[in-house]
């Protein structure tokens, strides 16, 4: 996790995908991911259909393949799990490249990798084409509890500030010769986090007072969202429809 992590993954653009209302994009992505998870794993071709659908979205949104590929690193932990899985799983063993592995384990590992990767790609596309602010509006329109969206809104707004605080603290530590190499340095890092908590909490109190002084009465106003257009619905339905075709065909031909 570098400094870039705090900026989110948004890639500004003016494509059809970028302009689609956020709540439709969230539903579309979620439906796609659920269909991917429900796809039987016996055949490989339905996953090619899913991947093609995502690539079509990426192309329409002009999100470069390299952008997506480099950000696939978040899946490293479960890639490790998938690699280990065929060796530890139960069931009949087969020999692959001279190694004895569990056959159902191998199938499960493939399915994990395929579904996990498709899920990450779908989430990456959503994050790349949607501004954090629009995501919040979208979640409000999807009837997520108002208070939860407000908390999330504060997080989205202040994540740069708080991580900036943290960055300045670590620069201050480094400029005094601090170098975290072993658990012996944990107390210093923990004190740093303690200070960060106090600063964040106090900032929260100040923000609240500033809001009160501007007439805050317990909830934030919701900005009017654009009316729903049929064209948007059709565009948003495209991705889950393609996934449903792939998944449905896989179920029928099983």
């Amino acid at each position: 996790m570098g400094a870039e992590h705090t900026h989110g993954l948004h890639l500004p653009g003016q494509s059809t995908v970028h302009r689609l209302p956020a709540h439709l994009k969230i539903v579309s992505t979620l439906a796609f991911v659920l269909l991917v998870v429900a796809t039987p794993r016996e055949a490989t071709w339905p996953y090619a259909v899913h991947l093609a659908a995502l690539m079509l979205v990426a192309r329409t949104a002009r999100v470069p393949a390299a952008y997506l590929a480099t950000r696939l690193v978040v899946e490293v932990p479960f890639v490790v799990f998938a690699v280990v899985l065929p060796f530890v799983a139960t069931g009949p063993r087969i020999s692959v490249l001279g190694l004895s592995v569990s056959e159902p384990g191998l199938v499960a590992a493939w399915a994990l990798l395929a579904k996990g990767t498709l899920g990450v790609l779908a989430a990456l596309l959503l994050a790349a084409t949607t501004e954090p602010r629009d995501l919040l509006t979208g979640l409000t329109r999807l009837r997520l509890p108002r208070q939860l969206v407000e908390i999330m809104g504060f997080m989205v707004r202040y994540v740069e500030v708080v991580t900036g605080d943290l960055r300045r603290m670590s620069i201050a530590l480094a400029s005094r010769g601090f170098d975290a190499r072993s658990p012996r340095q944990w107390p210093v890092l923990a004190t740093c986090l303690g200070a960060l908590f106090v600063r964040s909490y106090e900032r929260g109190e100040r923000v609240h007072l500033a809001m009160l002084s501007r007439g805050y009465a317990g909830s934030l106003p919701v900005l009017d969202a654009a009316p729903l257009r049929v064209g948007d619905l059709v565009v948003a339905a495209a991705l889950p429809t393609m996934a449903a075709v792939g998944m449905g065909a896989a179920v029928l031909t099983r």
Binding site: V161, V162, L166, R181, G204, S219
Partner: peptide, 26 residues
């Protein structure tokens, strides 16, 4: 009480930032 939104938001951000600090093990 009614400070919930800003305070919980900042504390959530703190948790997010705290998860970013790498603690060296060995």
């Amino acid at each position: 009480d009614d400070r919930a939104a800003p305070l919980a938001g900042l504390v959530a951000t703190f948790v997010f930032a705290a998860q970013m600090i790498n603690f060296p093990v060995a």
